[in-house]
Design a protein around this nucleic acid. Structure first.
Lengths: 324, 324
DNA sequence: ATGAAAGCGCTAACAA
DNA sequence: TTGTTAGCGCTTTCAT
């Protein structure tokens, strides 16, 4: 099927492309009669606008890039769903790019996004260094960090209250008499991991227990890549486990149970069960009200059209006991 | 930061844009010296190509649209992950569009994809009618259906072997003495639901049980939208449940257990636990080897570059008992 | 209310 | 090996 262009419609009707363009874009300076003829011809001929040409000329693509570690993580998949729905309603498309927690891949993703002239970028950074975010800042494109932020960097973000998250997990355990939690997950350079651990430590401190680095077990945060954590924990003294995420908590629970019994408490984060009902008891600390997705979508659009220039926002969290 | 164009580089070096273009695109007809100078200048000046302009001129965007019901479904999120990884490796970007199982939204998504001049479309159709797929066929853009196909329509697809899936679930139950499974899920017009039910019926038939429509309970397949299925099942005679998907199985299991006891077998599909380890016993029939993602990526690329023109492929399935 | 024309940044065909 | 030129299909400015 041959592609129909503005010119084809213009020729068909004996008007100019400018006229057709105005009608199709709702610029109201064309007579009612011509307008109707154009609209009719466009429908009849099956016209679909060439967004590429429009974008090249206008300088806006109505597209944003969503750069995240791994869309197969249910937490990110859910946030992505909410973002895409909201962006689409506003006429935006979203390009999704996985980084697999790899800095090099992340840089490639940023370059790809820029090359495709996206109007803005939403980035959940892998955080091995600040380099990529600094590169992004230098470009001058609207962007915001989501889910993870750099304390040492001047950049917009929308994140969970991670310190409080860890604190809530810690208090939950402390109230039930546990005194030796071990934190399993992510690397120390990943902010949510660090802050959740610090929050956990703060809660334990309130009951007279001081946690040190021995209670922090770094592991790869990628889905389904934990390995035999239970074995690595052999020899360590602990009476409860706090995992970096629900995904990790779910994955290591069977190992832990086999080695340390069924009653060992395991707490996760993200509250996956709140949007993806799962039929087993689990406790998790997650954001209330759908998380950072809605805010992130609003903010990036606002930054694109210039109605907002800065955003440092933290989403509140709560502890959930599912299927109690 | 001002945007650097080919022309800027050309002016800087006293060559023409054509020369610069050739160097940057690796067309090897430029002297080593000029090449080096161009490459150096590009790096120095922070050049990032304008893909829009390149695409407008060349007619290729190196972009595909992935149109699916709901990215927050872990099964689709995982398939999406595999597809995006593979496409990215080949230089393609993927635009993700949720349809929410809505035909109108799906049509919009197809139009959006076309307007953005994607090179190809991967579509998991909502199937309320064949209309959108026929529209897509008419456009002449390379596309393939994923996960769901239309028996009555001539269109490429890569899908699970759904009939066998249902059959395996049925045989699993039959072998354990169950004789009255009820199938919960999706609407009759959604192909995998229909075929899984037919497979289930085939298996039951082998042990002398004939299933009729009374054993098919249609419900909304969207994540977290089941409602009180257990209550709706009240009065129906059944000894086991086969759900349209793991997501549905997981969601309704607590309701069912509360009403019908902990021992009621519930079987799902997609084998989510195989890529997202979950710490509870569940049985599910899913595709082996990562599912249709890899094939879908290969096929759409092959169709785009003309090295393949048709594909009717079914991915084999197996039954999994997780955390037995 | 409509036309005419420039040009967004690039690729590709052809000249030199 | 490099330069020249003509668009890709649209938006936008300026005339009419």
């Amino acid at each position: 099927m041959k592609k129909v262009t503005l010119k084809d419609i213009a020729n068909e009707l004996g008007v100019t492309v400018g006229t057709v363009s105005h009608v199709l874009n709702g610029i109201d300076d064309i007579s009612e009669e011509t307008k109707l003829r154009v609209l009719d011809a466009a429908r009849r001929m099956g016209y679909i606008s060439n967004g590429l040409a429009a974008s090249l000329r206008s300088g806006k693509t109505k597209t944003v890039a969503l750069i995240i570690p791994d869309i197969s993580n249910p937490h990110l998949a859910y946030q992505t769903k909410l973002i895409e729905d909201k962006m689409r309603e506003q006429g935006y498309s979203v390009i999704i790019l996985n980084t697999n927690e790899d800095e090099r891949t992340e840089e490639e993703a940023i370059r790809t996004a820029c090359s495709r002239q996206v109007d803005g970028i939403l980035l959940c950074p892998c955080q091995r260094s600040t380099q990529n975010v600094e590169f992004l800042k230098g470009i001058g494109l609207p962007f915001a960090l989501i889910g993870r932020y750099f304390a040492e960097l001047d950049a917009d973000y929308i994140c969970a209250d991670d310190h409080k998250s860890g604190y809530l997990a810690g208090r939950f355990l402390a109230e039930r008499g546990y005194r030796a939690p071990v934190f399993v997950g992510a690397y120390e350079y990943i902010e949510p991991g660090r802050n959740r651990f610090l929050g956990l430590a703060a809660a334990m401190s309130e009951v007279g227990v001081e946690l040190d680095d021995m209670s922090f077990f770094p592991i790869d945060p990628i889905v389904n890549a934990c390995g035999d954590v239970a074995a690595r924990l052999e020899g360590v003294k602990f009476d409860s486990v706090v995992a970096f995420s629900d995904v990790i908590a779910f994955e290591i629970t069977p190992q832990l149970r086999e080695r340390y019994g069924h009653d060992l408490p395991v707490i996760g984060f993200d509250a996956i069960s709140s949007h993806l009902p799962l039929p087993f008891y689990n406790v998790s600390v997650g954001m209330i009200g759908g998380g950072w997705a809605a805010k992130a979508a609003d903010v990036i659009i606002a930054k694109i059209d210039g109605s907002r220039d800065t955003c440092r926002e933290t989403i509140d969290v709560a502890l959930f006991e599912f299927n109690k």
